[in-house]
Amino acid sequence: METNSALIVAQELTKTYTRGSETVHAIRDISLDIPAGSYTAFIGPSGSGKTTLINILGCLDNPSSGSLFIEGRKILGGDRPLGEREMTRIRRERYGYIFQKFYLIPTLTVEENVLLPCTFYRKADSEDRLNELLTFLGLEKRRHHLPGQLSGGEMQRVAIARALINRPQILLADEPTGNLDSARSEEIGRLLKELNRKQAITLILVTHNLELARTADRIVELRDGRIRLS
């Protein structure tokens, strides 16, 4: 099957849910390419299907129909839905995730929170990578602090470091500034852009924040489960 040279290719992705006797189409026939090293922002009102789409693009959910390819290899949309273990294996090798609520473990230090994914899956140079990330994200002096001693912006930077510790190809950021004030949001926006440019990470962003979305190379708007190109 022809999948061109894009890192991620989505072909006719559809996701339906059954609510009582009613069938709800969360997304319908979405096809798109995401080139390696690109920065794509998904925007749209609540219920537009952007979270469902990013869950499938992020290997967190199976589509009802359609396929997802990564580097030309079909990952989702085969004869059977992909199991939890296989999806986890793909996620930990290729993806990093940033969430609105940070989800740092309050009893672990900054350093320990960043290294947490290495407890489950470790690449050889994780100690060097830790130092590099803490320096890049301005967290060297905070490495032994607990999350409760940090500001919201610092906590999100720790979450970014955690997402990047295993050198993912793709970084998924789901409302990363949703819990931050405008100054901190700008700071995180700049940081994400810099990461995309300097480290050539493919960045997929979901946000309501148009200012933040404008830092992306491409904005994809979703309405009623379909793409409206801007």
């Binding site: 939890e84 986890t88 996620r91 995730y97 969430f99 989800y103 407890t119 489950f120 899956y121 997402a163």
Partner: peptide, 12 residues
Amino acid sequence: QEIGILKSIGAM
């Protein structure tokens, strides 16, 4: 939620 996040960041 935290356990779910752990699984999303690579925990089997």
